[in-house]
C-alpha cells in the first residue's frame, strides 16, 4: 500500500512537469492557432541554463532565476523572428519551420555544452527525505516540485479568470480582429503569451534538471508526452491540461510500476515481463486512443 502511495506521488510529480509544459503549449495552440514543435527546446534551454548557472554560482535558486528569463527571452525572440510570420499560414508550414528550430536548438546546445549530459545537484536545503506516513519516506525535492506546480496552476487560473490581461488573452483567441479593434496591441499580446508559455517550459526543464540528465534532445520525449496530454485534455483548455497531465503522469508511472507484478500473477515470468514492459510503455497511448474514440476533441474542448 505504501508503495502505491509512493508511486502515486511519483506519477503526480511527472504530471506536474507535464502540466507546466502543456499549459504553455495549449495556450499557444488554442489562442494563436499555431502548432509549435519547438516547445520542448525551451524546456531544454531552461534545464541547460539552470544547470550551468547553478553549477557556477553554487546556488540552485540562482539557477532557477536565470533559467526562467532565459527560456522566456528565447521564446519571445523566436516568436518575433519566426512564428509571427506563420500565424496566417497552414499547419504544415508551422510544423516544418518549428521542426527546423528543433534541429537548430539541439545542435546549438551540442556546440555550446558538448555531447556529455550535465548533471544538476539537488540543493542541500531541499535534499533528504521526509517521512510522510509511518514507513513512507519521500524525497523533499520531489514534494517541492509538486508544490511549485500546484502554485503555478492556481496562479494561472487567477491570471485568466481574474485579471484584465487574462481576459484579453482569452478574447484574443476567440476573435483576433475584434480585440485589435478594441485597442489592444495584439502582436505584443501574442509575444507575451508565447513568452509566458516558454517560461513555464523553462521552469519545467530546470525543475527536471536534478531528476533527469540534462542533454541535447531531452525536450522531444517530454514534448510528445505533452502532445498526448493536450490531445486527451482538449486543445486550448487549461483545465484540460491539468486533467490530462495528471492522468498521463499517473497512468505512465503506475503502469510501469505495477503492470509487471500484475502480469506475473497471470502468466509465467518471462512472457509476463516482456508483455508487461511493452504494455506499460504503450499505456498512455492506449489511454489516448480510448479517449479519442469516446471524445474526439478531448475531455475539455475549449471552443465547442
Amino acid at each position: 500500500m505504501l508503495l502505491v502511495i509512493e508511486q502515486f506521488l511519483n506519477g503526480l510529480q511527472l504530471g506536474i512537469t507535464l502540466f507546466l509544459m502543456s499549459a504553455g503549449l495549449t495556450l499557444v495552440f488554442g489562442i494563436m492557432q499555431v502548432i509549435n514543435l519547438a516547445h520542448g527546446s525551451f524546456y531544454m534551454i531552461g534545464a541547460y541554463v539552470g544547470a550551468t548557472v547553478a553549477a557556477a554560482s553554487g546556488s540552485f535558486l540562482l539557477g532557477v532565476a536565470a533559467a526562467l528569463p532565459a527560456a522566456a527571452l528565447c521564446g519571445m525572440v523566436v516568436e518575433f523572428v519566426v512564428l509571427r510570420r506563420l500565424y496566417e499560414r497552414e499547419h504544415l508550414d508551422q510544423v516544418l519551420a518549428t521542426f527546423g528550430l528543433i534541429m537548430f536548438f539541439n545542435e546549438l546546445t551540442r556546440i555550446i555544452w558538448g555531447r556529455q549530459p550535465l548533471f544538476m545537484e539537488v540543493p542541500l536545503w531541499l535534499g533528504g527525505s521526509v517521512e510522510l506516513l509511518p514507513g513512507l519516506v519521500y524525497p523533499v525535492y520531489r514534494l517541492a516540485v509538486i508544490g511549485v506546480g500546484l502554485a503555478v496552476a492556481v496562479s494561472l487560473w487567477a491570471l485568466f479568470a481574474k485579471t484584465r490581461l487574462g481576459m484579453q488573452i482569452r478574447a484574443g483567441g476567440v476573435n483576433r480582429k475584434m480585440v485589435g479593434a478594441l485597442g489592444v496591441n495584439i502582436k505584443l499580446l501574442y509575444t507575451l503569451v508565447f513568452g509566458l508559455g516558454t517560461l513555464l517550459a523553462g521552469l519545467a526543464g530546470v525543475m527536471a534538471g536534478p531528476i533527469l540528465a540534462v542533454e541535447s534532445g531531452m525536450g522531444e520525449s517530454i514534448l510528445i508526452l505533452t502532445f498526448v496530454v493536450i490531445v486527451i485534455g482538449g486543445i486550448g483548455s487549461i483545465r484540460g491540461a491539468v486533467a490530462g497531465a495528471v492522468l498521463v503522469g499517473l497512468v505512465d508511472t503506475l503502469g510501469r510500476a505495477f503492470l509487471p507484478a500484475v502480469f506475473r500473477m497471470l502468466f509465467d515470468s518471462s512472457t509476463a515481463d516482456s508483455v508487461a514492459s511493452s504494455l506499460a510503455s504503450m499505456a498512455i497511448y492506449i489511454l489516448m486512443a480510448a479517449v479519442l474514440v469516446v471524445k474526439p476533441k478531448g475531455l475539455f474542448p475549449a471552443h465547442s
Binding site: 499547419h91 502532445f227 498526448v228 490531445v231 514492459s277 511493452s278 504503450m282 497511448y285 489516448m288 476533441k297
Partner: peptide
Amino acid sequence: MHFIMITLAFAQMLYYFFVSL
C-alpha cells in the same frame, strides 16, 4: 492540430513498443 499530434503519438507508441521488444 489533433490529427498532427495523434499521428505523432501513435508513431512514438510503436517506437517504444519495439524498444521494449
